Simulated scan of single mutants.
Amino acid sequence: MDTKRLDLNLLATLEALLEERNVTRAAARLHLSQPAVSAQLNRLRDMFNDPLLVPAQRGMTPTAMALQLLTPLRQALDQVRDTVVTHRHFDPAQAELTVTIACTDYLQSVIGLSLIQKLRQQAPGIRLAIRNLEPPRLETQMVRGEVDLALMTPAEAPPTLRTRHLYDEHYVLVGRQGHPQLGDNMSLEEYARLEHVVVSLSGGNFSTPVDQALQALGHTRNVVLSVASFLFIPEIVAQSHLVALVPWRLVAGRTDLKLVKAPTVSRGFSVGMVWHERNHGHSAHRWVREQVGSCLVG
């Protein structure tokens, strides 16, 4: 490849094609005609001596080389874009826009108050809309502009969206203070005999991956209540003999609950931010992402 004749516009087109996986959508994003983008794709294929994208049932599928190119390509173009926009001054106090964030009930509880306070103090013109996360619809929602930012496990996000890891969460076993059977060094058998509350986001399910792991070890958990939201659990267990596995940040600092190390059969999860390319370089959205990150990591 003759890098002296390298056209950065072609690389921007390649980035859009790899993320959109559709010539028409890539053309709309780049404000170019579809024939122009098709012609640039042909030039890119010649440049890399690879098809890069091949026709699929829906849109196009990247080749192995194209997938290898995406991350370093993004990083290189981001550096160029950042260099171009660093001179622009963004004043949160003067910004006026609405930002829609999709996340689970647990993250709504963890981030809600601190983020709202921060925005009211520093950016009173930014309105915040928080909605429930719908993973199967997320990509479409972001393409349509219905969701600006999602908080979720980054590995579960559609590959066309941008992600940033924020922190790793772990579960704790919680019950009321003074619970007679809740101890720090319980065996799996003792743990299984407790009366448990589980969360079923779809509603009504009494079995979770924890139960499947316990069954593989010969134990059956005594699940007596299934709820559709983590937010109910702290109040339920604080006033009963029930116990539950919940994310640590949901109950951190509560003095009416006893927190015990979770059994080995429970696994943690990572939390990150997910957003669409259209908002990546937008100064206000970038500032909001920084505030969300500081609320969750700081």
Rank of each mutant, 00 (worst) to 15 (best):
T163W: 05
R193M: 09
D148Y: 12
A129M: 02
Y191F: 15
L201F: 03
P158N: 09
N185D: 13
E190K: 14
R162Y: 10
L151T: 00
D168E: 13
L161N: 04
G145T: 12
T140R: 14
L128W: 08
M152E: 04
P159E: 12
L194Y: 02
I130Y: 00
A155T: 15
Q181N: 08
E156T: 13
V198D: 10
S187A: 06
V197L: 05
V197I: 15
M152V: 11
R176I: 00
M186N: 09
T160L: 09
P159R: 14
P154Y: 07
Q181P: 06
L182S: 07
P135M: 09
T163S: 10
G175P: 10
R127P: 02
G145D: 14
V172G: 08
T160M: 13
T140Q: 14
H179K: 09
M142Y: 07
G175W: 02
A129W: 01
R144A: 05
E195C: 13
T163L: 05
R162W: 01
Q121F: 14
Q177S: 14
E195Q: 15
Q122I: 00
A157T: 06
L194C: 11
I130R: 02
N132K: 07
E139A: 14
A150T: 06
T153L: 08
P158M: 07
H179V: 06
E195H: 14
L133E: 00
Q181H: 14
H170M: 02
H165A: 06
P136W: 09
S200G: 04
S187L: 04
R127W: 01
E134F: 00
L161C: 05
E195W: 01
G175A: 04
G183H: 15
L166Y: 05
